[in-house]
Design a protein around this nucleic acid. Structure first.
Length: 218
DNA sequence: AACCAGGACGTGA
DNA sequence: TCACGTCATGGT
């Protein structure tokens, strides 16, 4: 229904203007360290925040050379706060970014484990999985509130399941394929934006008929 | 004008 | 463990 999604979106210069663009069917991205780092920062900034609010924050960060880890490390926290203000929670998120910066330089270009990411202040399960899946191309399924909402509505999981329980259900039933994992989560978000913004639209999810299911009240 | 976004952390029971 | 409060901007 939705076609290739091309997650994770990246800040790009187009016609000398900065935009945030998706890259459908280009699974080699990210292919530079700044792109990899940008995805990590975006994953932190989008915590409980609409992506459209994150875009301006990323553009501001790019302006002060804070989307390149080498130069980002030196930026004062007050400067950081000002840049990311449009993304909300700027006091917390500035600290989270600095905590991640320390971790990132400590990792010295190696691929972090999930537990290592979770040990960083400000990185919880969803952010860790997003970083693994989209920045490091590790086959790790991302579970977000949309995933929980859709699949609860379809009656395929229980509302109060823990994060890792839901994650395991997907990982047991999917081929360990990076492209499938990346696109599946992106499609869940896209689908949720269509049918799961307001509760009165849950019952009209076309997947209910398509999969011959009955929707469950959330 | 409430409500909610691609969550995580701190606290008290 | 678990439920709940807190963090903050911006669009609908």
């Amino acid at each position: 229904m939705y076609g290739p999604q091309g997650w994770w979106p990246l800040i790009t210069k187009k016609n000398s203007v900065l935009q945030c663009l998706y890259h459908p069917k280009s699974f080699e991205i990210p292919n530079t360290q700044p792109q990899q780092y940008e995805i990590c920062i975006g994953a932190i900034l989008t915590q409980n925040t609409a992506w459209r609010n994150v875009i301006q924050a990323l553009i501001n960060l790019n302006q002060i050379n804070a989307l390149n880890h080498k130069t980002a490390q030196k930026i004062q926290i007050e400067m950081l706060k000002e840049a990311i203000r449009p993304a909300g929670y700027f006091n917390q998120k500035a600290k989270k970014i600095q905590a991640f910066n320390d971790f990132y330089s400590q990792m010295d270009n190696r691929i972090p484990s999930r537990d290592q990411l979770l040990s960083v202040w400000g990185i919880g399960p969803e952010t860790a999985d997003s970083i693994l899946l989209y920045a490091y191309k590790q086959v790790s399924f991302v579970v977000d509130t949309y995933t929980r909402r859709i699949f609860t509505n379809l009656g395929l999981i229980h509302e109060k399941m823990k994060y890792d329980e839901i994650k395991q259900i997907f990982e047991k039933n999917l081929n360990a394929d990076i492209e499938i994992y990346q696109e599946y989560h992106a499609l869940i978000v896209q689908h949720a934006k269509q049918y799961y913004q307001k509760k009165d639209t849950y019952a009209s999810d076309p997947l209910i008929e398509r999969l011959n299911l009955r929707h469950h009240r959330v």
